[in-house]
Design a protein around this nucleic acid. Structure first.
Lengths: 153, 153
DNA sequence: TATGAAAGTTTTAAATA
DNA sequence: TATTTAAAACTTTCATA
């Protein structure tokens, strides 16, 4: 599955991750190459799916989304039908930014961004009314020390 | 802190979050406006810090980063000096994608992306050798159900 | 890989509602 | 005050060497 990337590819990815608004010329200069090879490599990496999309990162606080919770979920249900419903509920809710199925004792972890604690409670009430859940622990973030989309390349 | 955004601003943000490669004309058409007002609003939202940056989202699997852990940390140390060192270590390590200080029983949560379980162990050993930590629980993600940078606007 | 030219986009300015 | 029009500067895209 892992794509074969050389040093130049990695430098280009690193530049694009830092700032996707740079022009090809600028990136080419920084990575010590020129426009055409950089352009061809970017196109190839998009086709390969190494680069999945280009987006803007918004400031959650500036949008008034001041509360962030990590939610640990244990469930007694492990049936296919229950799971499908649960996953669908998570995918549909825009306040759920991350959702992972886990190995071990805790079944799922979510990262949820909302306006405030009340908005979290509304989310929580809605979720447990949609699907049966055995145990939920919400961890409230007091400080975002780091939050990055930049992967080490 | 929350910026005053109107309906048109929100539509523009929604388009940019979905796909930041769209041209101004395309965005303008979709949100029912035209190039210049859209351009002025984007510039204003960048200045206000609502839009913090533009980036590419890479596929972690395609890069060979196949393991994702959520790490729950309890510490006995709460001194300023210890904390500064700990936060610095987290910020410097590129495999740490998220780090939050929490309210309550668990002090910190991390999201860590690495090649495999061995790479996680190397990260873990390095971290505990740098700073004293009381208790660590690592939750291994078996399936990424959802992972988005798109905030509800 | 480099060059360069065509097509398209962003950015600024001026005119208009 | 905000929008439309228009034009200059710049960028991307692609053919050719």
């Amino acid at each position: 599955m892992a794509a074969a990337l050389d040093d130049l590819d990695r430098k280009i990815l690193s530049e694009l991750q830092q700032d996707a608004e740079q022009s090809l010329d600028e990136i080419a200069r920084k990575v010590g190459s020129s426009k055409t090879p950089v352009w061809n490599r970017i196109r190839r990496m998009k086709e390969q799916g190494v680069i999945s999309r280009q987006t803007v990162i918004l400031d959650a606080e500036a949008l008034g989304l001041e509360a962030c919770f990590f939610v640990l979920i244990r469930t007694s249900e492990h049936e296919a039908d229950w799971q499908r419903k649960f996953l669908q509920a998570l995918r549909e809710r825009p306040e759920v930014l991350e959702a992972h199925r886990l190995a071990g004792d805790i079944d799922y972890i979510l990262k949820v961004r909302v306006k405030n604690a009340r908005a979290y409670d509304e989310f929580y009430q809605a979720l447990i009314s949609e699907v049966k859940i055995y145990n939920v622990t919400a961890l409230l973030s007091m400080e975002e020390i780091k939050s990055t989309t930049v992967l080490p390349v």
